[in-house]
């Protein structure tokens, strides 16, 4: 087993319309170590979400190769037939809006994936309790989502993304809806998780102040991606 969580090779994505072909991703290569937390930056329309969707096996690339947790999932076609199973078992998602299921309580939101993965009830409840305690919201276990604050909801969303012991977490502006203090608190938490549980994370954010919490910066512009160390990156 290698120490790589994500390996992307010559990944391209084209959108073909009747009159033209739009190349959104023009052949990108990068690697992410286990436990590495990367900031994904880029102007609007640069292909950040497209990249995130391709890494999440939701959007099919045009060509290239994607290896997730030592498993080739895409090589000019989907190698893995059941991409949803991969998402269920190895990936975690955190969104800008918490995107929790409003008609389920905190525990049910968190245990949704382990239930689908066939984990025993005793086990997934124990795990949910551990995660919620770890995130400092164990007292909200039976609360409905509507009764939580923005910060608490985002913590529940993080808890949900951790419930299936993911190897990779893809986060789309998880702090955008939070004030500065809460945003920092969430980033501290994500970093802690990445390091303690060796989870690779790609976090889309435009907030320069959060740079110290990242190991690396993935900057995507005009369909190309450059990777730099966060400590050596200056943002404007």
């Amino acid at each position: 087993m290698s120490s790589l969580a994500i390996k992307v090779e010559n990944l391209k994505k084209e959108y073909i319309t009747k009159d033209s072909t739009l190349q959104v991703i023009k052949g990108i290569d990068f690697e992410l170590e286990k436990g590495e937390i990367a900031m994904l930056l880029g102007p609007s329309g640069s292909g950040k979400t497209t990249l995130l969707l391709m890494l999440g096996c939701i959007l099919e690339p045009t060509s290239g190769r994607i290896t997730l947790d030592d498993e080739i999932v895409y090589e000019d076609r989907w190698i893995l037939k059941d991409t949803r199973k991969l998402r269920r078992e190895k990936l975690g998602f955190i969104f800008q809006a918490h995107n929790l299921i409003p008609f389920l309580n905190v525990q049910d939101n968190v245990t949704l994936l382990p239930q689908l993965n066939g984990i025993a009830e005793v086990e997934y409840k124990k795990k949910a309790k551990e995660i919620l305690t770890y995130l400092g919201i164990e007292d909200k276990t039976n609360y409905m989502i509507g009764s939580l604050s923005g910060g608490q909801s985002q913590r529940v969303a993080i808890a949900r993304s951790l419930a299936n012991d993911p190897r990779i977490i893809l986060a789309d502006e998880p702090t955008a809806a939070l004030d500065k203090e809460r945003a920092i608190s969430v980033m501290e938490l994500l970093r802690k998780l990445a390091k303690e549980q060796e989870v690779a994370m790609i976090v889309v954010t435009h907030d320069d102040r959060l740079l110290p919490y990242f190991d690396s910066v993935l900057k995507i512009d005009d369909g190309y991606l450059t990777k730099t160390k966060a400590s050596e990156t200056k943002l404007h």
Partner: peptide, 16 residues
């Protein structure tokens, strides 16, 4: 539909 999209995104099978 948004919630259903979320469920699909996190990996819920169609049958569920």
């Amino acid at each position: 539909i948004k919630e259903i999209a979320i469920l699909k995104l996190i990996g819920m099978p169609n049958i569920e």
